[in-house]
């Protein structure tokens, strides 16, 4: 499955729903989406990863890049993920210390820094 990307606004947050496979081929599309949102002034992002079927370290790099971009504007990037395989990759790479990870979009949208 290819990568699918949809975004919507919830209050002052922008929710990006990611589905399919984030790999070395598709990660540039996610990078462009995050750059476009930040360029348009969306600095508080929630990335919903519940429909992601594959994620490699290239995808992790794009998420870290997105985090750096929103932080440059005092923004935030929160992840929504309950899939054990993906959570394991975040734990292995130490990124659970970097990203707030939530169990639902509602929880992520309601969270404050």
């Amino acid at each position: 499955m290819d990568l699918s990307l949809q975004d919507r606004t919830e209050g002052d947050r922008t929710v990006v729903v990611v589905g399919g496979e984030i790999d070395v081929y598709t990660a540039p599309k996610l990078r462009e989406k995050l750059i476009d949102l930040v360029s348009a002034g969306s600095y508080h992002l929630v990335v919903d990863m519940e429909a992601v079927e594959f994620l490699d370290s290239t995808g992790l790099g794009v998420l870290v890049g997105g985090l750096k971009r929103v932080r440059a504007h005092e923004g935030s990037l929160r992840l929504v993920c309950t899939q054990e395989r993906i959570l394991k990759i975040f734990r292995i790479t130490g990124l659970t210390k970097v990203f707030p990870i939530h169990a639902s979009v509602d929880e992520a949208v309601a969270a404050t820094d």
Binding site: R31, S57, T58, L60, G61, V62, V64, G65, L67, K68, T93, G94, L95, K97, V98
Partner: peptide, 10 residues
């Protein structure tokens, strides 16, 4: 961890 993702080059 973040240092391993400089400029998104993993």
């Amino acid at each position: 961890p973040v240092s391993f993702f400089e400029d998104e080059q993993v």
